[in-house]
Design a protein around this nucleic acid. Structure first.
Length: 650
DNA sequence: GCGAGAACTTAGAAGCAGTATC
DNA sequence: GATACTGCTTCTAAGTTCTCGC
């Protein structure tokens, strides 16, 4: 830990880093939001170091007080709400000076992958048709392949080549000299064994399943939490990644390589000096124990595929993640205040004499209009060939002076993050089109479209336009503003709750489409759609029957004119209404599902949409928040749920 | 000012568990 | 009680941005 950083001791320094202000739809007089850092509104409450202890003592005292009281049934039901109320509202407290992430951190260290259990004697591996007993090391790696046998990966040449190369490194010299051809290896018996095991796990008795569940809960209780500044916080990934075969996305040159087993000797522990330092497993040592409170991670290690560092960090519901998330949306809101100015600026820059400035301006236009990612340069041969805005190549776009009745159309076709295809035909302004023609002049398809630009140049420029502005802020801003606009446009005040939720999902979908969040259509999609359709058909029949019954009840009542038949009519009416509602619900569900076939809503909901927009919408229309956010999401967005009122404006 | 490495966010797929349906 | 289905959780890869040392 670096010490002696005297600027942190200045009182003014502390004062300038409070939580972002609660912004309640304030009139914009200056045209800019004050950044959380600049605006030092009086703090609600300073951060108390002993908050956690207070909470514990408080709840203990309450428990003692209530011990002998008989709790009425109604109160018992209210209990969860009370518990929720007790949750720590970090968003009402002062924030640490920038750079300081915590003052006290204690945790139990990571949970390692279970050791390899050799296969039973009767499970055979065959080479060239003959049984072959493998050494433990070679067998373990073989099981990784056997477990993936049904996956498309194992048919890919690169995967097989990488696997075989790494597998051979684990073999004894004898094995190495025998096993020379992967195609002669027969893993099917091993594969069948694992399938049978999976099946057996499914068939376990309730008691056995319960035992496993309890063991997992114990592990979570012991290792799944840490104490950070006197608050118990949930850890996101306390288990070390087990060994296996690397599954890169898309056409990854390293797919199939062996991800080696991580040992305590690979692990760096980060915690407070004065905390109880987690002991390494018996007979082992940690690589290092450090006490760096300028970072948020608890544990780190270096993986062997790309040589990158992996971390154990806190759950999204934690203060440390929540604060950062909140800050992200505040930055996006500041962009809202100056986006017009920035847009005018890049339009001007399309005319610049400097090629670099023109390229920067066109790239920024794409990032803004199409929500493209920045697009860092990548080392060739290390990862799949994917691009973002700055790394687009000539081969990724086609220019159409006219297409389908539209002028100046740019056709994008490239693989983005996770090798997800981005395909879009976009009419652009004439100047953009002409600039693109210029950028493409005398270039080969594999040449960079923006040869004078990279993400560093672009972000430096953005920093000059607005403090804290980077390329990705545009994605956050455009996603959130789109949600807000779409909700305003699509919500029909007369609709019932399911119809309003459909509108919400459609607004969410508009964002997911903008951000190109795709998913593989679920394997059971067609079937589940058919099931739903048959439910709808059945419901329609039921409705027809109910209507017929109502009609005859009405006729009957007309003749009899007595109370009993009147009542029958009323109850038949109600039945019709109920079935109509049920039918409508099913139809809405079918529409929603169909429209969602290849679109993933989760990513935008979790990472791009200011949760306060959704919370405000729910409050405005009386939609229970549970209909929009599940439990985990509510935990992540607790700050937003607590602070946003129905008049919140992004 | 630059490049490499570190830190942290964003991403889709797989696995799992709870619920609906027969 | 078995099976099918669905939504949630977990996993970890793949991005972006920040930081540090030269």
């Amino acid at each position: 830990v670096k010490s002696g950083n005297n600027e942190f001791l200045e009182p003014s320094f502390f004062a300038s880093f409070c939580s972002p202000p609660r912004i309640k739809d304030e009139p914009d007089d200056d045209g800019f939001y004050a950044s959380p850092k600049e605006d030092s509104k009086p703090l609600k409450r300073p951060r108390e170091d002993d908050d956690f202890l207070l909470i514990l003592q408080d709840s203990k005292a309450k428990k003692a007080k209530n011990k002998d009281k008989k709790v009425p049934e109604a109160d018992k039901r209210k209990k969860p709400k009370k518990e929720e109320e007790q949750k720590w509202k970090w968003w009402e407290e002062e924030r640490y000076p920038e750079g300081i992430k915590w003052k006290f951190l204690e945790h139990k260290g990571p949970v390692f992958a279970p050791p390899y259990e050799p296969l039973p004697e009767n499970v055979k591996f065959y080479y060239d048709g003959k049984v072959m007993k493998l050494s433990t090391k070679a067998e373990e790696v073989a099981t990784f392949f056997a477990k993936m046998l049904d996956h498309e990966y194992t048919t890919k040449e690169i995967f097989r080549k990488n696997f075989f190369k790494d597998w051979r490194k684990e073999m004894t010299s004898e094995e190495k000299s025998t096993i020379t051809n992967l195609s002669k290896c027969d893993f099917t018996h091993m594969s069948q064994y694992f399938k049978a095991q999976t099946e057996a796990r499914k068939q376990m008795s309730k008691e056995e399943k319960q035992k496993i569940k309890e063991e997992n809960e114990r592990l979570l209780k012991e290792y799944g939490y840490c104490v950070m500044d006197n608050h118990k916080e949930r850890i996101a990934n306390f288990k070390i990644e087990p060994p296996g075969l690397f599954r890169g996305r898309g056409n990854h040159p390293k797919m199939g390589m062996l991800k080696r087993r991580i040992m305590p000797e690979d692990i760096i522990i980060n915690c407070s000096k004065d905390s109880k330092i987690p002991p390494p497993p018996p007979g082992h040592k940690w690589k290092e124990v450090r006490h760096d409170n300028k970072v948020t991670w608890l544990v780190s290690w270096t993986e062997n595929i790309q040589g990158s560092i992996k971390y154990i960090m806190l759950n999204p519901s934690s203060r440390i993640k929540g604060e950062k998330d909140w800050q992200k949306y505040e930055t996006a809101r500041r962009l809202k205040k100056c986006v017009d100015k920035i847009r005018n600026q890049y339009r001007e820059d399309w005319k610049s004499k400097e090629m670099k400035v023109r390229q920067r301006a066109v790239a920024l236009y794409f990032i803004d209009k199409l929500a493209l990612r920045a697009g860092n340069e990548k080392e060739e041969g290390e990862t799949a060939d994917t691009v973002g805005c700055c790394s687009l190549r000539v081969e990724h776009i086609k220019l159409h002076p006219e297409l389908d009745g539209q002028e100046y159309v740019v056709e994008f076709d490239f693989l983005g993050k996770d090798s997800i295809r981005y395909y879009n035909k976009v009419p652009v302004e004439k100047r953009v089109f002409k600039n693109l023609q210029l950028f493409m002049e005398n270039k080969q398809p594999e040449d960079d479209l923006f040869d004078r630009l990279n993400t560093s140049i672009l972000n430096k420029h953005l920093q000059d336009l607005m403090e804290g502005l980077t390329a990705k802020v545009f994605r956050t801003y455009n996603a959130s503003i789109t949600l807000q606009q779409q909700l305003k446009e699509l919500t029909n005040p007369d609709d019932n709750i399911p119809a309003k939720i459909l509108s919400y999902n459609r607004a969410n979908r508009a964002v997911a489409i903008l951000c190109n969040h795709q998913r593989a259509p679920p394997k059971t999609f067609e079937k589940s759609m058919m099931n739903l359709q048959s439910k709808i058909d059945a419901k329609k029949e039921q409705l027809a029957d109910a209507r017929r019954e109502l009609k005859s009840a009405k006729a009957d009542a007309k003749v009899r004119r007595d109370e009993k038949s009147k009542k029958t009519v009323e109850s038949k009416k109600k039945a019709v209404q109920r079935i109509e509602e049920q039918l409508m619900k099913l139809e809405v569900q079918a529409t929603d599902r169909e429209e969602n076939k290849q679109i993933a809503l989760g990513t935008s909901k979790l990472n791009y949409l200011d949760p306060r927009i959704s919370v405000a919408w729910c409050k405005k229309w009386g939609i229970p928040i549970e209909k929009i956010y599940n439990k985990t999401q509510r935990e992540k967005f607790a700050w937003a749920i607590d602070m946003a009122e129905e008049d919140y404006e992004f």
